[in-house]
Every structure is written in C-alpha cells, then in structure tokens.
Design a protein around this nucleic acid. Structure first.
Lengths: 147, 147
DNA sequence: ATCCCTGCAAACGCTTTGCACATGA
DNA sequence: TCATGTGCAAAGCGTTTGCAGGGAT
C-alpha cells in the first residue's frame, strides 16, 4: 500500500515534469521509470536493458538513455561514476541524499550520510562566492576482514 | 634552483619505482614525466600527446597511457574524472592532497582543502571496519557573478 | 495530420590491444 | 641476446546520433 502510493507519487512527479516540458507521455518512459523504481540497488543501462527485455517490456538502449536523461533532469534519478568505465544510476525520490564507500576488493558499495559534508559545502560557497548545486563523494576502501 | 632540485627528486622517485618493479628506464618514460611536471594545470592524454609532439618529444598515445599507469602506481600522478567522458590527471608530488570545485558555467576548476574530510574518513573507517585508501570529492557549482 | 519518440545500427571518442620492430639490461 | 617497451592501427566498449517508421496529441 505504502509502496503503491509511493509509486503513484513518483509517477505524478514525472507526469508533471513531462507536461511542463511539453514532452510526450509515452508508455516506454513510464515503464522505464517503473522498472527503475522496482530496483533497490544501483544499476547501469545495460543491465536495465537486459532486465526489461527479459520480461514484459521491450525497449531500446537509445530510449533508456534518452529517458534517463529526463529522469535526471526531473530529479527522479541520480547518476554515479564509481570509477568504472560506465555510469551507474539509482532512484532518488524517497531516498535521502547520501554518499558511497566502494570496497575495492569485493566491489561492494556501501552508503553513508555525514552532515559535515553540507557544512563544508556552505563554507566553500562563501569562500569562492558560488552556489554549489551538487557534489559527489566516493571513498575507496579495502576491508579489514581478509587480513 | 628549487625547481631543478624538485625535478631531480621526482625523477629519483620514478627511477626507484622502475628499478624496484624491474621496469625499464626508457627515454619516453622520463620525457613524459618531465612534461607532466612542467604543467601547472590538469591535463588529459590527448592534450599531452599534442603538446609533446609539437615540441621536442615524439611519443605515441599508447606509451602515454602506459606511462601514466606507472606514474599513478608510483604516486607521482593523480587521476580525475570531472564528469566529462575522458580522464584528467595532475602531478601529485610536492602537491598537497586537495579536492575540486567545478564551476559548471565556465568549466573552471578550483581547488580546496578541508580537514573535515579526513575526520569523516576516519569515522567511516570505524563504522564499517574498513581501511580507506583514497577518496574523490567534487563540488559542482555555478558562479554567483553572472546574476 | 503533425512532429516528437522509438528502434536499429552505424558512428563516436576515449582507451586498450595486437603485432612487428626497436632497445634497455 | 632477448624479454620488455614502443608506435601504429585496429579493436573495444559505453554512449550518442541519424534515419525511417510509429504513435501521442
């Protein structure tokens, strides 16, 4: 129930965005949005493509790239570059801003949230007289376990 | 004077690294090191390639990629992904660890250093029982001037 | 009926790789 | 000598683009 209500709300956000931008409300766009919001982990375009084509929806990579662009612009998806050659994404609505630790030996990605980041951003805004819209912070680590 | 002494020291670091790793001390490797340490700004492989081939040294892109790999491993160069599709690099010896602000409307990159980052890293190490080897932090901003 | 969107495949751009030749050790 | 390094061009690979057909409005 909460889940469905959340999904409705996300869909509304996207619908509003498309309306305001005079973009068409195509079934592909909504099925991509749906699929992304059914995922709990980070994903890349290719795995999303595989996943969608194995099940109900048939979409092209081009349309996925295109739609993700719109989702980024509407704030429904965040983009990450964890250090591989490809981009990864994650849903961002109902999902607090957070940063990532990449455990290099296992490939695992952990999330954390530290208020000091926002303090740093505020200070840097003042130092350089700029407006900081966004940031990306990745910590690269090795686990102590394997020692 | 100080400059030459510094360059010698950098050269020594690289020489020692190559010796320990049983890699050959080729003229190409040292001319690439030299060129990189003569630059004050961030650079990408292609601009380095252009710059070197316009002057004294003739090296291939393959050799530049190969050598930068060694320089990364020996800690003489740092790699950055500012959000473009290509990688940028900078010399790192005699150059404090710092982070970057990317001013999106001008493409300018500013550097800063904030001690709170290290505090965050220490805390996260304890939280997850990991060893953090490295981090990357980019702040994306727009300048207040143009308003 | 428009004209934007989609799917397909080709093009792109940075990076890596394969191979023949050159060279440091 | 001979394994490693270099240069060149081709291949890789994620992403973008061009174009013809299809569907939202």
């Amino acid at each position: 129930m909460t889940k469905n209500k959340n999904n409705d709300q996300v869909k509304d956000v996207f619908t509003n965005y498309l309306t305001h931008k005079n973009h068409r409300k195509t079934p592909e766009r909504f099925s991509i949005l749906n699929e992304i919001y059914s995922l709990e982990e980070h994903f890349d375009v290719d795995s999303l493509y595989e996943k969608m084509n194995k099940k109900n929806y048939r979409v092209s990579r081009a349309t996925i790239y295109n739609t993700i662009e719109l989702l980024l612009e509407s704030g429904l998806v965040r983009k990450h570059q964890f250090g591989d050659s490809f981009s990864q994404y994650e849903k961002s609505y109902f999902n607090n801003q957070h940063d990532h630790v990449i455990i290099k030996d296992t490939g695992e990605v952990k999330e954390f949230c530290d208020p000091r980041i926002e303090l740093i951003k505020k200070d840097i805004e003042n130092v350089f007289d700029i407006k900081i819209d966004d940031h990306s912070l990745y910590l690269y680590a090795t686990s102590n376990k394997k020692k």
